[in-house]
Simulated assay, not measured.
Amino acid sequence: MSPPVDVLVPTCERPHALAVTLSGLAAQTHHDFRVVLSDQSAEPVDTDPLVSAIRRVLELHGTPVRVDHQVPRRGVAENRHHLLELSDAPYALFLDDDVWLEPWAVGRLVEAIDELDCGFVGFAVQGLSYRDDRRPQQLSAYEEWRGRVEPERVRRGSSAWDRHLLHNAANPTHLAEQLRLDPATWRAYKIAWIGGCVLYRRAALVEAGGFAFWPDLPREHAGEDVVPQLRVMERHGGAGILPSGAVHLELPTTVPRREVECYDVVGL
């Protein structure tokens, strides 16, 4: 029987960061998942010794790993679309190639999405170099879900859009500290969107169109994960989870040209 979670990792020219990401997956206490990489690097990433070493660790632990060399590059939305096409598990965890997960992270996300019964849940990635940079003015939008997570329509210009400030810098870390949360407890909260680590009910993401809008975009674009999340949230609801189990490696972006935002091109 196939694992119930596909961990879908789009990657491009980041073998050492990817090795850190994979090492976090290898250390998970919840083991029932498969890893699928869609690689847009010029040289296949699985030829890198660090990536190959951690892949062997994952496979030793019984975790299947699939690597697709997806070239030529057609943009980040197309890469995510390709990953979704490769997935057949009930849950699809989109994980960026510069994010390290706490050992309890995958299990917590699966627990949360089952309990909340919504379209997706996610961890906002924490930039720990900002640990001493407290921004209380950006935390005022924090609002917890009490009981069932309901569908929401969130669009730019609405008050709910201000929730994106919750995920800046080390704000998720500071929120968890303020609420005195630890890995044994968790809270669900309202979001605008989440980048870097999102667990979807795959059927809900497919129903909302996934990333099939990629042909409408130029190759250089950004914000490809915002549109699907807004669509899924409007139909099935979505939530952030605290404390966050995701840490951003804070490397330079592989998408330096960000003039085109998907939100501005793709109709919602």
Rank of each mutant, 00 (worst) to 15 (best):
V5L: 06
V7Y: 08
L8W: 11
C12A: 09
R14V: 04
H16E: 15
L18G: 11
V20I: 11
V20F: 10
T21K: 08
A26S: 14
H30R: 15
V36Q: 14
L37V: 12
Q40P: 02
E43V: 15
P44Y: 03
L50S: 14
V51S: 03
V51H: 06
S52H: 15
S52M: 12
I54G: 07
H61E: 15
H61C: 01
T63R: 12
P64C: 13
G75L: 07
H81E: 10
L83Q: 07
L84H: 00
E85R: 15
D88V: 11
L95P: 01
V99W: 09
V110D: 08
V110K: 09
I113V: 15
L116I: 13
G119N: 00
F120E: 09
F120G: 05
F123G: 03
V125K: 07
Q126N: 03
G127R: 14
L128M: 13
Y130N: 10
Q137A: 13
W145R: 12
R148F: 02
R148P: 11
P151M: 05
S159T: 08
H164S: 04
N168T: 01
A169R: 06
N171D: 15
A176I: 13
A176F: 14
E177G: 05
Q178P: 03
L179T: 00
I191D: 06
I194K: 08
G195E: 10
G195V: 10
G196M: 08
G196F: 01
Y200Q: 04
A204T: 00
A204E: 00
L205V: 05
A208Y: 10
G210E: 10
F211S: 00
P218C: 02
R219C: 05
E220R: 06
V226N: 07
Q229K: 03
G238R: 07
A239I: 00
I241K: 13
P243N: 00
S244C: 09
G245Q: 02
E250G: 02
P252T: 04
V255K: 11
P256Y: 05
E259Y: 05
V260P: 06
